[in-house]
Simulated assay, not measured.
Amino acid sequence: MYKPRPPLIELKQFYYFLTLSRHRSISAAAQELGIAQPSLSQCVSNLESRLNIDLVIRGSSGVQLTEAGDELARYAAEVIERTDAAIERISELGTKVRGAVSLGLPPSLSAILGVPLLETVQNQHPSVQMTIVEALDRTTLDLLSSGELDLGCVYAQPDTNEFSSWAMFQEDIFLATAPDNWPHEIKPDGFATRPIEAITLQELPLAMPRATQGSRRMIERAVRKYGIRLNIVTEIDSVPQMLELVERASCYSLVPQKAVLPQLAAGTIALVPIVAPTIRQTTFIARKSSHPTTRAIAVVEELIVTVLKDVIRRRKLDIDLM
C-alpha cells in the first residue's frame, strides 16, 4: 500500500516556476507574481538544489529552460490544473446537492405525496437519486434499522433509542363505509351528514391492518382510554384490498381522508366523522439515530414538508402541519 511522504516541492514553487517558464524572464515573471526578483531567483535556486539538477540557463537576455526545467514545467502545469480541479470539486460539494436518498411512505401518504415529491427533487436537485418505498410502519422501521432506508414516515412514534423522529402533521380518522351500507345521508363530497360516536364502533365489523402496524396501534390506544374495544373481524396489511372490502360492503374500516381520495371522488366509499372522542392520527418522520445525514437527506426532509404543504392546499385536505 502506497504511503505518502511530505512533498519535496511546495505548490507555490510549482506556480512560480511555471510562471517563469512562460515569461523566460526573471523580471517579467516576478512582476506578474508580485514579488521581488531576488525572491524568485532564490526560489529557482532552491528548486535546483532540492532536485540536484539545473533547471534554467541564465543569460543577459533572460533564462532558458534546460531539458529538466522543461519537464518540470509540464509537471507543474499538470499539478496546478489538478489542484484547481480538486478545489472546484470540493467547493461544488458545498453548494451542489448530490447523492442517493431512500424514503419509506405509508400507502395513503404515498398516494398524495410520492409523485409530486419525486418531481420536485428531480427539478430542483437533479443530482439527487430519489427512491420511494411504499410500506406500512413495521416494514418501514425494519428497513430504517437495516440501513436500507434513509428516512421513513410512520404513524406511531418509535419508542426506542434506535430511532430519532419528529411529528410532521395530524389528521382526523373517519369511519369508511360503502355509501349503500350507511343508513344516513351522504353529502355530494362523500362525507356523511351525521357523525358516529366512537362507542358505536364496537358494533361494526372492521377491517384493519395487523396489530403490529402503527396506525392500528394508535387508533386502538386512542379508543381504549374510553373503554372502547374495536370489533376487528379482518386483519389485512394491504390497503387496496382493505378498501375493496369496504367498497363491497363486507365491512367497515378506520382511515384518514387522504387514504380514500379516489374512492371519494368515484362515490364508492363515504366517510363518517367520529366524535366522542374524535380520533386524531399523527404522522412522524423517522430515521435511524446512528445513520449519517448527508446534505441530500436533509434537503429531501425539508422538501417533504414543502411539497406536502402545497398538496394540502391544492387538494383542500383537512391536515394540520405541526
Rank of each mutant, 00 (worst) to 15 (best):
V239S: 04
L254D: 10
R287E: 11
F163R: 14
C251D: 08
E197V: 11
E247Y: 00
E171C: 12
Q213C: 05
F174K: 00
V246D: 04
V275R: 13
I186E: 02
P205M: 11
G227E: 06
E220M: 07
R210H: 14
A178S: 08
A211L: 15
V233Y: 02
I228L: 06
T177D: 04
M168Q: 00
K258D: 05
E220V: 04
A176G: 03
L204I: 08
S215I: 15
Q263I: 09
L264G: 03
S215P: 00
P262R: 10
Y226M: 12
R224C: 10
P195A: 09
P205F: 06
V223E: 01
R280G: 02
I232A: 14
R248I: 05
P179W: 14
R287L: 11
M242L: 15
Y226E: 15
Q213I: 10
F163E: 15
I186F: 06
R280M: 06
M242I: 06
F191L: 07
N231L: 05
R216E: 13
P183V: 01
K187S: 13
Y226K: 14
I219D: 04
R194K: 12
L245W: 04
A222T: 15
M242V: 06
A178V: 07
T200F: 01
R216K: 13
L254A: 13
S253D: 09
I173T: 07
Q263F: 06
D189C: 03
A276L: 02
P256A: 09
C251N: 11
E197S: 14
Q257E: 15
L264F: 10
S253N: 07
P205S: 14
P195K: 02
I279E: 09
S250R: 15
L230G: 14
W166V: 14
D189M: 01
I285F: 10
M168L: 15
V272H: 02
S164Q: 15
E247M: 10
I219L: 04
P273G: 07
A249K: 14
N181T: 06
T283N: 01
I173C: 09
M218S: 15
A211W: 08
P205V: 12
Y226C: 12
F191K: 07
E171D: 00
V255F: 04
L243Y: 04
T282Y: 02
R221W: 00
